[in-house]
């Protein structure tokens, strides 16, 4: 009986859920689509938040950046939870192998002294920057309108703690299995002059009060930091006999390339929106005009200290190049960050 059943072909009566058929036509939907599109409620919220009575529980007005159709943005990586944790599990496993290799060959101890100081005094403290990035991204996960953006922000938030832990594990290794290097790094984050610009920047970004503005501010700083610390310095390290710095940096550089994919897609969706695109572009220009110079100043302060430690590093110059590249990629979206407004806010 059962065997007969199993050979019988039973035609499905529908291919997927109705809201996906209405959006994409009568075709089977991917697991990304089924697990993402439309999950956030949009109507009949019962009560106003006690902590924000002027808004609904989910409300486009939590940001100046608005999409007419929130699902005009989708994650180009198509990440839902299962592939997300699988990908990150591999990232951390691969990082763990790198770190094991460095430790078992005692390579961290053989880092040139300047690079060791660079790592401990200027890179490890960025675990706190990553923690700030987590909080900004978590805020975006809560307040973004629509599941697609919120989901990307939510994973990005967890990524940031992961990045912080990557840095922390490097610190534990540098400390010979103790937390000494981490303690030193924290003291530097709090007091080292080279880092105060960046700390001020993160603290101010965290209280900007508009999740979209906060995310853009974070991304502007990321774009400079990641370009310089994990790409530019990666090459400098290889030439300067600090191969283990390069081996570690590749994991964070790889992460940022992945992060860029969804953030760039979001900027594109914002600026391409048929109804709100022009206003979004204007907001983006204003936010960039306000925050990019601040980010550049803060990261330059940090990189100046790098150039002091490693004289041929050219880190300050790399920041300026990265800032130009940010301006250029915004311009490609039709977002003009005027030099004048840059100077004003600087």
């Amino acid at each position: 009986m059962q065997y007969e059943l199993r050979t019988q072909v039973i035609e499905p009566i529908r291919k997927t859920f109705t809201h996906l058929v209405e959006r994409y036509g009568d075709r089977p939907a991917s697991r990304y689509e089924e697990g993402t599109i439309g999950l956030q409620a949009t109507e009949h919220f019962h009560y106003r938040p006690l902590w924000a009575p002027d808004k609904e529980l989910y409300d486009p007005a939590y940001s100046r950046f608005v999409l007419t159709d929130p699902y005009s943005f989708t994650d180009p990586r198509q990440l839902y939870y299962a592939p997300y944790v699988t990908a990150r599990s591999q990232l951390h496993e691969s990082f763990g192998k790198t770190l094991d290799y460095l430790e078992s060959h005692n390579l961290l101890a053989r880092l040139p002294e300047a690079w060791r100081q660079l790592l401990t005094g200027l890179v490890l403290p960025l675990r706190h920057y990553e923690s700030g990035g987590q909080m900004i991204s978590s805020n975006a996960c809560r307040f973004a309108y629509g599941t697609t953006i919120a989901q990307c922000a939510g994973y990005a938030a967890f990524d940031r703690v992961g990045n912080a832990q990557i840095l922390s594990r490097i610190g534990l290794a540098l400390g010979g299995g103790t937390t000494d290097a981490l303690a030193e790094a924290k003291a530097a984050w709090m007091d080292a002059p080279a880092l105060q610009g960046l700390r001020r920047y993160v603290e101010q970004a965290m209280v900007a009060g508009d999740w979209g503005v906060e995310m853009v501010a974070l991304d502007l700083a990321d774009s400079l930091l990641y370009a310089v610390l994990y790409r530019h310095l990666d090459e400098v390290a290889l030439l300067g006999g600090a191969g283990s710095y390069s081996l570690l940096a590749q994991h964070l550089a790889g992460w940022f390339a992945d992060q860029r994919r969804w953030v760039d897609a979001l900027y594109k969706a914002w600026t391409a929106d048929p109804q709100t695109g022009a206003a979004n572009a204007e907001h983006l220009a204003a936010v960039a005009a306000e925050w990019l110079p601040k980010a550049q100043a803060a990261v330059t302060q940090l990189t100046a200290a790098i150039d002091e430690l490693v004289p041929d590093a050219g880190a300050v110059g790399a920041v300026a190049a990265a800032a130009d590249s940010v301006t250029a990629s915004l311009a490609a979206l039709g977002v003009t960050v005027s030099a004048q407004s840059k100077e004003e806010s600087a």
Binding site: R48, L50, W51, A52, P53, D54
Partner: peptide, 10 residues
Amino acid sequence: ALKTIGTYEF
């Protein structure tokens, strides 16, 4: 008294 941030009257 309801504890809120801001006026809460609906």
